[in-house]
């Protein structure tokens, strides 16, 4: 573990009454790194995200951002601290245009006194530029988000988080609803976000998606940490084994190869 990680979690626990949703979870993520959080359904992944996103607060343990202990009381606080979450349902309005979605809730305005209007030209220009930085050429910023492919939509969400000053980017199952090829695209976006210096927490139940992009892996099972490994400490086989056992191994193997080849091709 680095001496001064950007985001460090120590022994995080969350209890709902006498139900233990999360217990003693420890991990960290640094700028320019990807930490993958793996776990099957009900492993405590969503509780984990909600604590980091400020929706819930941990019952025990500490979160340190840049070495300082923090406790996010609301999603807004987390956002202001630079921790942005891209939810599984994307927080996008399908019928609205790309640029409106990109700036939703934080539109740049111009105008005199109380009469303020959105600076459309600026907003469109920035949206196109930011998407271009992610390697995506938006044909028309007026295009409704609903007409984009799933991968493109994830990209808009990631670009948006990056533009609005996120230092830590939390991605909630970004590949779970996507096909193999689309997943490859999203993985590539994760790598690009990392290369831009963001700290990425990538939540998934798919080790085949996690291993190629991750620098660190946290495995959750029934609310407990099954281990927190740096990439060099664990192979993909072991990761998969820890995750799901041998039964699904064959199946995952093939999916894995496909995804990796997809990434390389693009």
């Amino acid at each position: 573990m680095a001496e001064h990680d950007l985001l460090q979690l120590d022994n995080i626990s969350k209890f709902y009454g006498n139900i233990i949703a999360l217990e003693g979870v420890t991990t960290s993520v640094n700028a320019g790194e990807v930490t993958c959080v793996l776990g099957d359904n009900g492993a405590g992944k969503s509780t984990f995200i909600k604590i980091l996103a400020g929706v819930h607060q941990q019952s025990a343990g500490t979160i340190k951002l840049n070495g300082e202990e923090v406790m996010f009381k609301s999603p807004r606080e987390a956002l202001d601290a630079g921790v942005a979450t891209v939810y599984q349902d994307l927080a996008m309005v399908p019928l609205m245009s790309v640029w409106r979605n990109f700036f939703l809730g934080a539109e740049p305005t111009k105008g005199i006194g109380p009469i303020k209007m959105i600076d459309q030209a600026k907003a469109m220009r920035i949206a196109v530029e930011e998407m271009a930085k992610m390697g995506i050429d938006i044909r028309d910023p007026e295009q409704p988000v609903g007409t984009l492919s799933g991968g493109e939509r994830q990209s808009v969400a990631i670009a948006r988080a990056g533009y609005f000053g996120a230092r830590v980017l939390i991605l909630d199952e970004p590949t779970s609803a996507l096909g193999v090829k689309q997943s490859g695209v999203v993985l590539k976006r994760i790598v690009e976000a990392r290369n831009q210096g963001l700290a990425v927490i990538f939540i998934t139940h798919n080790p085949a998606h996690a291993y190629p992009v991750g620098d660190r892996f946290l495995i959750l099972n029934r609310g407990k940490s099954m281990g927190n490994f740096a990439k060099e400490e664990i192979t993909q086989q072991e990761l998969t084994g820890l995750m799901a056992g041998g039964a699904e191994l064959q199946e995952l193997q093939s999916e894995l190869e496909e995804a990796i080849s997809g990434v390389k091709k693009s």
């Binding site: 999603p75 979450t85 939810y87 349902d89 994307l90 927080a91 996008m92 309005v93 399908p94 019928l95 609205m96 409106r100 700036f103 939703l104 809730g105 934080a106 539109e107 959105i118 948006r160």
Partner: peptide
């Protein structure tokens, strides 16, 4: 913009 957003996907609008 927010009007379209709360009608199109209120959950998403709140999240951002």
């Amino acid at each position: 913009s927010w009007t379209f957003a709360v009608g199109g996907n209120a959950q998403a609008a709140r999240q951002v």
